[in-house]
Design a protein around this nucleic acid. Structure first.
Lengths: 204, 204
DNA sequence: CGAGGGGTTGAAGATGGTCAAAGGAGGTGG
DNA sequence: CCACCTCCTTTGACCATCTTCAACCCCTCG
């Protein structure tokens, strides 16, 4: 899907593309402002949060490098949440005006559809994963859903800390679950980190 | 969004629409079959599950009445999971062929985009909600995100059992959390069930 | 070289899950 | 109209599990 995002950017009319840097803590947009763009994060991370009547706020999502957000710009006239940079971030701004009107590009809409449909699929599996109570079972299910190489190995390209967040566990729980799975001979971890940095897993 | 789904169905060419009934346990489609339709559930519920190499299976999602699924039909040539009816179900079949080709309807694609974008938004907030560890905090956050009437009340149209599943808790935990929130005077529950069946909440 | 971050493991405590039990509402069949 | 059944609701008690806190290693980077 990284590839799909690339495609989207390439197909987007140049005149509707721009960059923007936001420092940590800075706001990219605010709740109530007119929504006129979709964003893609090149680096950093952005948190979306909704202000509530009582002054408190609820986090709706935290988008990381490689993700898009504010797709709501399609239908809503204004943003329904604040976008705050968690760390210094570099975002690509895709003006949504090119989507409206009779002359809008059909191919662009199709591309957008497939990207969104994929995202829906990923998110649903993420939610389902989190329905698995046990840490071991949850982690194992996640592992089993990762793509395998022809050699039957699974390449772990993120840090376990990040994976832990994704599947809704603390990193400690994940490490413990990993240890247990190895001890029970369910998986094997590539202790061989000779030259490359990436870890490899094998299901037994 | 129920409304949006209605719109989608109305805009869908009649010749590409059909119904299908599946009994509990029956399969709507199988992993590997050519993907040529999107589905909308009218009644019942359908579980999507992926078969793994080792013979086990992972649940990817359980779709309920009012939801659409298999949006992957946009880009994938074949289904990547099985769809099994959990209970007797009645589904609407939207043939995806009308989306391809040069003559495809732009308005239809736009509508699809907004529907998918909304779903992405909802799913992301669902995932974020599940990141909240405490049962009380989680439930409260969910409540605060529900729309309020002008009177400042929140109408609960689902059963708590269903809500519990949605936010990843057992119903017992939800009832306990509700009791606690009431006891702490954070919310008020409408004990007044005089004539209508729906419960009402009020934030204090 | 010191700081920071990822990785790893241990011990203790908190919290939600599970099991159990019971009341109420609605539906159905005799 | 009543018996019966199912599902939602509600609360208590106990237990398994995950989180928290803490400490340590190793590596990288400024």
């Amino acid at each position: 899907m990284e590839t799909q995002l690339q495609q989207l950017i390439e197909h987007w009319p140049e005149e509707a593309l721009s960059y923007r840097r936001v420092g940590a803590g800075e706001m990219l947009f605010r709740q109530g402002q007119p929504a006129n763009a979709i964003y893609a994060i090149r680096s950093g991370s952005i948190r979306m949060e909704r202000d509530l009547e009582d002054g408190s706020t609820v986090v709706l999502h935290t988008a990381r490098a490689g993700e898009t957000f504010a797709e709501a710009a399609f239908n809503a006239s204004h943003y329904h949440c604040n976008a705050v940079a968690v760390s210094d971030s570099d975002v690509l701004v895709l003006a949504s005006k090119v989507l409206n009107g009779e002359t809008a590009d059909l191919a662009l809409h199709k591309l957008l559809n497939t990207i969104l449909a994929n995202q829906v699929r990923e998110l649903r599996t993420l939610v389902s994963l989190r329905d698995i109570r046990g840490a071991e079972d949850r982690l194992l299910a996640w592992i089993q859903l990762q793509p395998q190489t022809r050699a039957g190995e699974i390449v772990i390209s993120q840090t376990w800390t990040v994976i832990a967040q994704a599947i809704g566990l603390t990193r400690e729980s994940v490490y413990r679950a990993l240890s247990n799975l190895v001890r029970k001979r369910v998986i094997e971890r590539s202790t061989a980190q000779s030259d490359d940095r990436t870890e490899r897993l094998r299901l037994l």
